[in-house]
C-alpha cells in the first residue's frame, strides 16, 4: 500500500514537473525583435486594423478611442476579464516597457516579468503578425496620451485565476497556422493577414470549446455572444452568401446589403476599419469570400 502511494506521489510529481515545464513561457527570439525600429505612422494602420482600442479605451461608452485607459469588462465562462491601462503612463500604463517586452506581450501573451496573459487578450491571433508591424504599433501607442487610471483586477474563479495554467492552455491551443492555405492572390494574402493576424475576426465569429479555445472546424460560422444575449452571426459556411463587395462595404460603412446598420461589438470594428484605405477592406473581403469557396 505504502509503495503504491509512493508510486502515485512520484507519478504526480512527474506530471507536475512536466506541467511546469510545458507551462513555461516561450518568448520570441530576442535577437529578432530588439533591433527593429518602429515607425509610428505605419503603426497607426496596425492599431486600427488590430482593434486594440475596442478593448483598451476607457469604460465609458463615448470614451476617446485614443486614450487607452482600460476598464472595459469582458464576460466569459471563466469569469470577468478587465482590460488594463495600456496608455504610455509610466505608473499605471506601459510607459516604461521596452519594445521587446511589448512585442512578447502582444505576440506571445507573456508579461515583462514572465507571467502568462489570458487569451481574452487575443495574442492568439496577433501571434501571426509580423514583428516589424508590432514594433510600428509600439512606436504609435507611445505617441498616444498617457492616462493615470489604475488597472482593475479580473474576477475569475479557481483554477482559472492561476496564470500558470494558461501555459498548458497555450501548449494545447496557441498556433500560428492560417485557416486557408494554398495559393492565394496577393490581395487574398493581404486579406488573410489582416483578418487572421490583426483584425481577429475569428475571435468573435467562431464558437469556442469548453476550455475557451476556438473550434477551428467551425471557423467563423457564428457563435453565442459571450455577454449571453444574442448571437454573433456567421461570416463563413453555407448560410453566409455575401459577395466581396457586400463585405467590404459593410466594413467601411457598417451597412449590410439590406442597409441595416451595424451595432453591438461589431460597431467598434467598423469604426476602426472605416478609417483604413478602402483597398484594405477589399482585401479582407476577398479573403473572407475566398475562404468560403
Amino acid at each position: 500500500m505504502r509503495k503504491l502511494f509512493a508510486g502515485l506521489a512520484g507519478l504526480a510529481l512527474i506530471a507536475a514537473a512536466a506541467a511546469w515545464v510545458l507551462s513555461a513561457p516561450r518568448p520570441l527570439d530576442e535577437t529578432i525583435i530588439s533591433d527593429l525600429t518602429g515607425d509610428a505612422e505605419a503603426g497607426r494602420v496596425i492599431f486600427l486594423a488590430s482593434g486594440c482600442s475596442s478593448c483598451h479605451r476607457g469604460g465609458a461608452r463615448d470614451s476617446d478611442p485614443l486614450v487607452l485607459a482600460g476598464g472595459r469588462s469582458f464576460e466569459s465562462d471563466f469569469g470577468t476579464f478587465r482590460a488594463p491601462n495600456i496608455s504610455p503612463d509610466p505608473d499605471h500604463g506601459i510607459g516604461t516597457w521596452t519594445q521587446s517586452e511589448f512585442i512578447n506581450a502582444v505576440m506571445r501573451g507573456i508579461s515583462p516579468d514572465g507571467a502568462h496573459y489570458y487569451p481574452a487578450f487575443p495574442y492568439t491571433s496577433y501571434i501571426r503578425a509580423r514583428p516589424q508591424d508590432i514594433a510600428d504599433l509600439y512606436a504609435y501607442i507611445m505617441t498616444l496620451p498617457a492616462d493615470a487610471t489604475p488597472s482593475e483586477p479580473h474576477d475569475l474563479g479557481f483554477p482559472f485565476n492561476i496564470r500558470r495554467t494558461v501555459g498548458l492552455w497555450k501548449t494545447l491551443f496557441l498556433t500560428d497556422d492560417w485557416t486557408v492555405t494554398g495559393t492565394l492572390t496577393e490581395e487574398e494574402e493581404r486579406g488573410r493577414y489582416l483578418a487572421e493576424a490583426l483584425s481577429h475576426c475569428a475571435e468573435c465569429h467562431t464558437p469556442r470549446n469548453a476550455l475557451g479555445a476556438l473550434d477551428r472546424d467551425q471557423w467563423n460560422m457564428g457563435a453565442p455572444n459571450p455577454s449571453g444575449r444574442g448571437r454573433i452571426p456567421a461570416i463563413a459556411g453555407p448560410d453566409f452568401n455575401w459577395s466581396a463587395f457586400d463585405v467590404s462595404a459593410y466594413l467601411s460603412s457598417g451597412l449590410t446589403p439590406e442597409f441595416d446598420v451595424v451595432g453591438g461589438s461589431m460597431a467598434d470594428v467598423v469604426n476602426n476599419l472605416r478609417q483604413l484605405d478602402k483597398s484594405e477592406n477589399d482585401a479582407i473581403a476577398a479573403y473572407i469570400t475566398r475562404a468560403n469557396e
Binding site: 461608452r61 444575449r229 444574442g230 452571426p233 460603412s253 446598420v261 451595432g263 453591438g264 460597431a267 467598423v270
Partner: peptide, 20 residues
C-alpha cells in the same frame, strides 16, 4: 446619407443586441 447612418449606428451600438 452617411450622417443619417451614423445616427442609426450610434443607437444600435448602445441599445440593440447582437442578432439572435
Amino acid at each position: 446619407f452617411g450622417a443619417t447612418a451614423g445616427t442609426c449606428q450610434a443607437c444600435h451600438e448602445a441599445y440593440r443586441d447582437e442578432a439572435s
